[in-house]
């Protein structure tokens, strides 16, 4: 039995909007510590890992582990019926084949209830082992999104180089080439505009821009983003949530891999 309440539906709406393009159907594991989702995107380039800790909910109850097999697009469709400041409750009985969503408008005394059919999804459980990354950059989520959007006009791929001097994004295509360079800096007034780099050795990796722009849809969830990279390894891109995170493991482009 799961019962979880959020004071503002917008919290869940934003999360679902951020991941819906990448995931079709996936399982959400619920247990006493919270909700967790770990799933590969359709093209096996990105692993999405979502954690919503029980502390992030105004009320949370889950005595026995429950697995919710969800079609993310259907969930998004239902969530669109909720106003941003509605109180949202998720409920699912043990062994039930549906998820019940209630939206309450405290002022207008309106309560809407939706039953979403669950799916039975048989999938393998994958994880990326924890590692020490060679470079870690914390920067403004909005700036990252903007930078990548600009470069996507030029090419399908972006190269990210991190060294002591800063972080550099560059792309080259038929049109020409372009790059943006950021130096580490501290902005005392707007902390989120600071750029903080910790580095054990310089790194340079290329990524598919299309996927990257899908990832930065999560910018609405957090003002800053943490980029972690090691040569020849997937990058980890994390957006912090009040209690939990949305994390992406992103495979770099490798020349001879036709799937990247």
């Amino acid at each position: 039995m799961l019962e979880a309440k959020l004071d503002a539906a917008s919290q869940l709406k934003k999360i679902v909007e951020a991941i819906r393009d990448m995931l079709g159907e996936c399982n959400i594991e619920c247990n006493e510590t919270g909700l967790a989702l770990q799933s590969l995107d359709k093209s096996h380039i990105v692993l999405v890992s979502l954690l919503l800790g029980s502390d992030g909910f105004s009320e949370y109850r889950c005595d026995r582990g429950v697995t919710l097999g969800l079609n993310i697009n259907s969930l998004a469709t239902v969530l669109r019926c909720a106003n941003n400041d509605d109180i949202l409750t998720l409920r699912s009985e043990d062994r039930a084949n549906e998820l019940i969503l209630t939206f309450e408008d405290s002022k207008a005394d309106r309560i809407s209830e939706f039953n979403l059919r669950l799916m039975d999804i048989d999938q393998e459980y994958l994880a990326i082992p924890e590692t020490e990354y060679a470079a870690t950059v914390v920067m403004s989520a909005a700036v990252l999104q903007r930078t990548l959007r600009d470069l996507s006009a030029l090419s399908e791929a972006v190269t990210i180089e991190i060294d002591k001097e800063g972080i550099r994004f560059s792309a080259e295509g038929d049109l020409g080439k372009g790059s943006t360079h950021f130096k580490p800096c501290v902005d005392m007034e707007n902390a989120e505009n600071s750029i903080n780099i910790t580095l054990s050795e310089p790194v340079s990796l290329s990524f598919n821009l299309q996927y990257f722009s899908n990832i930065t849809k999560a910018s609405s969830l957090s003002s800053t983003v943490t980029l972690q990279m090691t040569a020849g390894m997937p990058a980890q891109i994390e957006y912090k949530l009040p209690s939990g995170h949305v994390r992406y493991y992103f495979a770099p482009k490798i020349e001879d891999d036709p799937y990247a």
Binding site: Q123, E124, Y125, L126, I128, P129, A251, Y259
Partner: peptide, 26 residues
């Protein structure tokens, strides 16, 4: 219909992230 709600997702052994991901046996 309802028969379309049970699906199975296959995990490939090659390409993209698969070089790095660790499959946890069930």
């Amino acid at each position: 219909g309802a028969h379309t709600r049970t699906i199975s997702k296959v995990t490939p052994t090659t390409g993209g992230l698969m070089k790095f991901a660790v499959k946890t046996e069930l």
